Computed example of a mutant assay.
Amino acid sequence: MDHTSLQPYLSSSTCIDVEDPDLQALARRLAMPARATTDIVLACFEFVRDEIAHSADFRRNPVTCRASDVLRHRTGFCYAKSHLLAALLRANGIPAGLCYQRLATGDEAAPYCLHGLNAVYLAAHGWYRLDPRGNKPGLEARFDPPREVLPFTPGKAGEGDLPGILAEPLPVVVGVLESCATYDQVLAALPDAALPA
């Protein structure tokens, strides 16, 4: 894949604010002992997965959206954690995007919500999905290319992977994160989007 087509996945933006000084410093620190791109990806992934608390798992406020705020407050929903991972990878010159799954929120089908995760471009494998939401009993994510190890596998009626790898978060996701003040408000208004027919 040529560099031009990957440029959007290396850019800084409002939510993926690559230029933030604290974020830049962390990106450099995580890359320091690394020898290969995959070492840097692993270090950034494990930092976000393990060191940033998932807001719902830990019942933690404030609600964060911008990557630098996720880092500052050390908490975020899956969407926000994916913004931080994308920013750390981009700060290290590694193309990274955002992916979404549509999942049932209960044991049956409806209602549904979106789940946010990442894709990273690896020269040896192409786009590879990884999920930094945070492990807990029954949910495990690892960086083990070319094999994807994701915590969720859509399989129920109405569930599925949204197509594409996005350079920017979906507006419906940003809207929920920016309009809710507490984690329980987000849980009551989780974003959703229909799968393409």
Rank of each mutant, 00 (worst) to 15 (best):
Y121K: 09
G97Q: 09
G155R: 15
P145S: 03
E168L: 12
A141G: 09
C99L: 14
C78P: 05
D131C: 09
G97L: 12
D144P: 00
N118Q: 10
G158L: 04
P151T: 13
G138I: 10
D131P: 15
P132Q: 12
P137M: 12
K81L: 15
N118S: 15
P137Q: 13
L162I: 05
A104D: 01
E108A: 12
A96V: 08
A110Q: 08
L89E: 11
G106S: 11
E108P: 00
P132H: 11
E159G: 03
A167G: 14
R90T: 14
A110V: 03
Y100W: 07
E168C: 05
E159R: 12
P151Q: 09
H83W: 05
D131E: 06
P146R: 00
E148R: 02
G164E: 13
L139R: 15
G97I: 13
P154I: 12
L114Y: 00
P151H: 15
A109R: 10
P145E: 09
D107E: 15
A124K: 13
A110R: 11
A110G: 05
P95W: 04
P111I: 12
Y112W: 08
A119Y: 04
L84R: 10
S82H: 06
N92D: 10
F152Q: 14
D161Q: 02
G134R: 02
A86L: 06
Q101A: 15
D131V: 04
Y79D: 10
E159W: 11
P154T: 02
R129P: 01
G106W: 00
A91W: 01
L117G: 02
R147I: 00
L98F: 14
L84Y: 09
G93N: 13
A124S: 13
G158H: 05
V149H: 05
P145I: 06
N92P: 10
T105D: 07
E168R: 05
N118G: 14
A109F: 00
N118K: 08
P145W: 00
W127V: 12
K156Q: 13
G116E: 11
R102Q: 12
A80N: 09
D161A: 12
V120R: 12
L98I: 14
